[in-house]
Amino acid sequence: MRPDVRRWLSRRTYTAASWTAADLAGAKRSRGSTVSVVLPALDEEPTVGAIVAAIHEALVRDAPLVDEVVVVDSGSADRTAAVAAAAGARVVDTATVLPAHGRVPGKGEALWKGLHATSGDLVVFVDADLVGFDPQFVVGLLGPLLTDPGIGYVKALYDRPLVTTEGIVPSGGGRVTELLARPLLNAWWPELSGFVQPLGGEYAGRRELLERVPFVSGYGVEFGLLVDLAGLAGVDALAQVDLGTRTHGHQSDAALGRMAGQILQTAIARRPGTGSPSPELLQFLRTADGVEAVSWDVAVTERPPMRTVRPAAGRGRS
């Protein structure tokens, strides 16, 4: 493992249990900060209401940590908007936010317009399809931002169980992360290889940073934000927080392929220079003490065309 990544992992990896909502509410009050929570949503009627209600009860009513909860609806065909509003969220439609810029499909569009539709100094993004949502997710993401002024962006890390016809695979989710995003980061941005869940949909940041980087319209938004914010503020301004386990719906392989295509486009647009990729791949295993990094050498050797190594055309093999 690179020494700089090892140092970053030890300095910038936290656990959500390190903070309570009440403690952070006091820190927020003393700093004069404000907090917005944004949930991008498209046909999430079964889950969005419970998430909004949990945030309101624990982090608006019981501990004044969150100032506004905004659901950004990307034109849902179900009752997502009504359910979210009934649970206490302010609901905005992507078509009505910055209408002069039009409307394009994709999660990144909802996040970008959610940034415009909110006013908090600190912005927390939470996917609207989470099952068994815990308000401590929001607490954990805000912890580093409210206790360390040197941190500007925080990603969640967690286990992602995969539900299959044969049962539950405890860490089987995140297939696009393991097959595409992690190898890309290790190859071209190895300084970011310590992020356990680079594509995770739960993260928080300071508005002053988030408003200075572009938002990719589709599923490449998380990859783009990670790379761009690291380039803008430096890797040491980024952190990750262990939230334990995150459960949500899973997409088909075909849908994941389309997601991977958007992430690949995002990465290609940001690829640094023309040098050779790093030959190291850092992967992570859940242990009793948290997560453990495991390093692999994935370098390949390319042999020349066979005809160039034969002494002369037509000569027998040797």
Score class of each variant (00 low, 15 high):
F125H: 14
V52L: 09
V235T: 13
R246M: 15
L229D: 05
T274I: 11
A21I: 04
S74T: 11
V227Q: 00
V72A: 10
L229R: 01
R303V: 07
L59D: 02
L157A: 14
V163L: 15
G132N: 12
K28W: 04
G201E: 09
S217D: 14
G120R: 08
A239F: 04
R175E: 13
L9N: 01
G150H: 03
V52A: 10
D289T: 12
L162S: 03
P149R: 10
T80P: 00
P214I: 08
G290T: 06
L157D: 10
R29D: 14
F215H: 15
V71R: 09
G224E: 12
S276L: 14
V213H: 02
G150Y: 04
S217N: 13
M259P: 00
E57Q: 12
A77Y: 05
K113Q: 12
K155V: 07
R212E: 14
A255R: 12
I55S: 01
S36F: 06
A82F: 02
Y153Q: 04
A293V: 04
F284I: 06
V52M: 06
V72Y: 06
W189F: 14
V35L: 06
S76Y: 07
G249A: 11
E211F: 00
L281A: 03
I168F: 08
E109N: 13
G150A: 10
F284K: 06
H116W: 14
E292K: 00
Q240W: 03
A63G: 00
V35I: 08
V213W: 03
Q283T: 15
V196P: 02
A54L: 07
L192Q: 02
A254T: 09
L24E: 04
A230G: 14
R11A: 12
P46Y: 06
G257L: 06
V291M: 13
E44N: 10
P272H: 05
A230Q: 10
V227E: 00
V69E: 03
M1W: 09
L225I: 09
L238H: 01
Y203T: 08
A255V: 15
L192E: 05
S18V: 08
G49E: 06
Q283D: 11
L142P: 00
V298M: 03
P46A: 11
T301Y: 13
F195H: 07
D134S: 15
G220H: 03
A95N: 06
A17R: 10
P190K: 01
L192N: 03
L65F: 04
L122M: 05
G167V: 08
D148S: 12
H248V: 05
G102S: 12
S76V: 08
V138F: 08
G150P: 00
T118S: 14
L115P: 00
A260Y: 02
D4A: 14
V138G: 09
H56S: 08
V92G: 02
R206H: 03
L122A: 05
L285G: 00
Q283G: 06
L184D: 03
A41I: 02
E45K: 08
A239Q: 06
L184A: 05
G220E: 03
W188T: 01
